[in-house]
Design a protein around this nucleic acid. Structure first.
Length: 539
DNA sequence: CTGGGGACGGGGCCC
DNA sequence: GGGGCCCCGTCCCCA
């Protein structure tokens, strides 16, 4: 019996030894494999870095070449051209046509939704049929990027301020506001991404058909933007991004904040209601205003960068303010990513060369996947908060040709997104729709209402709604009949100073707008324009 | 009667 | 918030 016990003990010992040996062997194998694996990963990372550097160099080179070409084009375009050109351009700006030359875009090839790090950006400047549509956003590092990678600029119309200067000129000899005499050169609209190599300075999306991977990089495409849990957001937003809305401000934030969607829109929107006469539009469709005002909190902290990122990551905010720090996250998109915002849809139709606000409008009208203002109504009606809305809700009736009026387009296309201050550093906060720069987040928020159609201020006397409180106040003079401005010449009174100023031209005989064709002068630019269209238009 | 132009009121938007 | 400009619609006058 004792022998039996001893035998079993020995067996157990041997088994234990063998087991330990096996474990040690396994561990060794695992360690070896792990070491090999890590070595491979390290090598891959090195290769990846090397490739990225090469890509940077290539893109920088392309950007510079493009800049040089732009300069040449501008030189060529600065030659005097005929009135026809500007008129034609104006027509296009109103959605009557497409600019067939000069405009270039980097657009994804048709049929491809995937952008990869190693995907070469090709540029077909002649046909505009390629490739990626990306942008470099001004940032602190922008200057370091050197010439050629500055924020794209596109001018199809003269700078209104500049024009105004020309028109006012020196007293006594009002300069001729030629209006159409010297059409600004039709410069190309291009978008360039600056790849600085710094992970937190380059944003790019790697979009698979149904998967949006947000890495350190994010290039915000329209489809990406709407590939939400809320493609509803598309509908709700109802304000499809202007082409430039593909652009995403690039800020120096290594971490992106993603807010989970919540229902706290009402709360979020309950800001700014300081005007007793202003019934704040709590019925604002949250999807229509992805900038959830909750972010005011962040904005007040100056954390606009994070704010912006969160908007683009999810477009939704958690009412609890829950924040998920995302370093790398894969956002699954339910269902098909609507190709709505694929630049391809424009390109395939031959609109590739003028893809900007103009094409955007066209696509809006033709692409059934795009939420139209009518769909806004649908979503608004679904919104329980908006159910209390009366007919005064102009939100849903916002027309994009109102939102994206020619002035807006011109400014959006203007250098620096309309920034004429020249101090672009002071306007680091970019509109996510038109890329226009502003000096502070609050201004961006207000400005973006232009695109979102959000009108927070409503008149208690009528159904009018306004984006800005000042507009409401001015409007209310219509009801009060208040006319605080009186003409010193004829005692005529006006509710607005600018109207008085305009009226004063009656007395001064000021006619700063002269027709270059017949010399006839007008007191209003519009009169001149109408005159030229009716009498001198050769189109 | 019609078209061109002047004048004015109002909204949009930016500074 | 005020100032200012742009744009549009409308009304009116006049040739």
């Amino acid at each position: 019996m004792a022998n039996c016990v001893g035998f079993h003990t020995q067996i157990a010992s041997i088994m234990e030894v063998l087991a330990n040996a096996a474990v040690a062997e396994i561990c060794k194998l695992v360690d070896d494999d792990y070491a090999v694996f890590r070595l491979e990963v390290t090598q891959s990372q090195k290769e990846n870095r090397g490739l990225r550097r090469k890509l940077q160099l290539l893109e920088l080179k392309v950007s510079r070449e493009r800049a040089e070409r732009t300069i040449r084009e501008r030189v060529l375009a600065s030659r005097p051209s005929s009135v026809k050109i500007l008129d034609r351009y104006r027509g296009m700006a109103r959605g009557e046509g497409h600019i067939t030359g000069g405009h270039r875009s980097f657009v994804k090839p048709a049929g491809h939704n995937t952008w990869r790090d190693d995907q070469t950006i090709t540029v077909d400047e002649g046909s505009g049929t390629s490739t990626q549509h990306v942008i470099m956003i001004e940032s602190a590092d922008a200057e370091a990027a050197g010439p050629g990678v500055k924020q794209e600029r596109s001018e199809g119309e003269e700078d209104p301020r500049h024009s105004r200067d020309n028109q006012t000129g020196a007293a006594g000899d009002p300069p001729v506001a030629t209006e159409d005499t010297a059409p600004a050169p039709l410069r190309t609209r291009r978008s360039i991404t600056e790849v600085s190599g710094m992970p937190n300075t380059v944003l790019k999306s790697e979009t698979d058909t149904e998967t949006l991977t947000v890495t350190h990089r994010l290039l915000h495409t329209g489809s990406d933007h709407r590939s939400d849990p809320e493609r509803q957001g598309l509908g709700r937003l109802g304000c499809p991004p202007a082409p430039s809305s593909e652009y995403l401000p690039v800020f120096h934030q290594s971490h992106r904040m993603v807010h989970t969607r919540g229902d706290g829109y009402g709360d979020a929107l309950n800001i700014g209601g300081d005007d007793p006469s202003c019934s704040y539009a709590t019925e604002i469709d949250p999807g229509n205003m992805p900038l959830g005002l909750e972010t005011q909190t962040d904005l007040s902290k100056g954390d606009w960068n994070r704010y912006s990122s969160s908007v683009h990551s999810e477009g939704c905010l958690d009412k609890k303010g829950e924040v998920i720090v995302v370093d790398e996250v894969t956002v699954k998109v339910e269902g098909d990513v609507p190709p709505t915002w694929n630049a391809d849809s424009h390109l395939v139709e031959g609109h590739s060369q003028g893809r900007d606000f103009l094409d955007y409008r066209g696509s809006l009208e033709t692409n059934l996947n795009i939420a139209t203002p009518s769909s806004l109504h649908v979503f608004r009606d679904r919104d329980p908060v908006s159910a209390s809305m009366g007919p005064s809700d102009s939100h849903g009736s916002v027309r994009f040709d109102e939102v994206l009026n020619s002035n807006d387009r011109a400014k959006a296309l203007a250098p620096g997104g309309g920034d004429t201050s020249g101090n672009i550093k002071e306007k680091r906060f970019l509109c996510m729709f038109c890329n226009k720069g502003f000096s502070c987040p609050q201004k961006v928020e207000i400005h973006q209402r232009v695109h979102t159609g959000v009108k927070c201020f409503s008149c208690t006397q009528c159904q009018m709604r306004f984006v800005q409180a000042g507009d409401l106040k001015r409007h209310q003079r219509v009801h009060t009949g208040e006319k605080p401005y009186s003409c010193p010449q004829c005692e005529k009174r006006f509710s607005r100073q600018d109207h008085l100023k305009m009226h004063m031209k009656v007395h001064t005989g000021e006619r700063p707008f002269a027709c270059t064709q017949c010399g006839k002068r007008f007191s209003e630019r519009r009169c001149l324009r109408i005159h030229q269209q009716k009498n001198h238009s050769t189109l």
